[in-house]
Computed example of a mutant assay.
Amino acid sequence: MNKALVLGASGATGRLLVKLLLNKGVQVIALVRKEGSLANIIDSNGRLDIVEAEISTMQDQELAQLLAGCTSVFSCLGHNVSFKGIYGHPRRLVTDAVAKVARAMELVQSDHPIKMVLMNTTGNSNRDIPEKPPFSQRLVVALLRLILPPHVDNEQAADFLRVQVGQDHHKLEWVAVRPDGLIDEEQVSDYEIHTSPIRNPIFDAGQTSRINVANFMSELSLDTDLWNTWKGQMPVIYNRTQV
């Protein structure tokens, strides 16, 4: 049976991801700050294990125990949209979590690398290609780096995977999924995946429903061909009707 650890499981996208994984028969370990935050998720088959903990304060060995036996790990972590969430600590929430997963995997006995799927953003360019956004976008992004710590965190988290983990890590494979403007929808709809943004995320953003992001992330972990297509890359996802 596929087994997954979901970081940020109580967030807007994380909750949807947990539900989709359970519906697809995956055994899920959901890491949340408060156990009651997933109280309304139906788990009729006993495949959901809710762990109340702060990823930022967990020891590597504790995380390794959760990762043992997992085939995939998802990060839907993000900063709360509040003054404290944006400018308070930990400012490197996502980056530190990704680095902690990489360290913890070194402690896990496994014959196969684990698949890590990171939820990122189209405001972050893939410097492996490299992408060349228009000057107007680069200017705004440079400003965001100065005034919005969460944007820097998103960039550094993806950079850790690109540079520190790379393409040939013996314990960890990865994909960083980049949605455009996030919206809420109840059902999975048609969506498209691109290697790079086809719209300007600052001045001409498209839309991506959170449930489509969650569905793509779940499919990456379950579909070997899809994983091999995007492994080590930063695919961009749009709702098809918006392209």
Rank of each mutant, 00 (worst) to 15 (best):
G69K: 13
T57V: 12
Q61P: 06
S56N: 06
M58T: 04
V73Q: 09
C70H: 06
I86G: 03
M58V: 06
S56H: 00
F83E: 15
V81S: 10
G46E: 04
C70L: 04
C76H: 02
A64S: 13
S75I: 00
K84L: 13
I55A: 01
E54F: 13
E52G: 09
G78F: 00
Q65P: 08
T57G: 14
S72L: 01
E54G: 04
S82T: 15
M58H: 02
V51R: 03
Q61S: 15
F83C: 10
A68F: 07
T57S: 15
D49V: 11
I86Q: 02
F74M: 08
S72I: 01
H79E: 02
L77D: 01
I50A: 07
I86P: 00
D60F: 11
V73L: 10
G85Y: 02
L66K: 03
K84N: 11
V51K: 10
Q65Y: 03
G88A: 11
C70M: 13
D49T: 13
I55F: 01
Q65T: 08
F83T: 15
L66F: 02
M58S: 06
L77Q: 02
C76G: 02
R47D: 13
G69A: 13
Q61E: 15
C76I: 02
S56Q: 07
C70W: 08
I50M: 04
G46F: 05
F74C: 02
I86T: 05
F83M: 15
Q65I: 04
D49M: 10
G78H: 00
E52L: 08
G46A: 09
G85D: 01
Q65G: 10
D49P: 00
H79D: 09
T57D: 14
S56A: 02
S82P: 12
A64H: 07
T71A: 12
F74P: 01
T57A: 14
G69R: 13
N80M: 03
L48W: 06
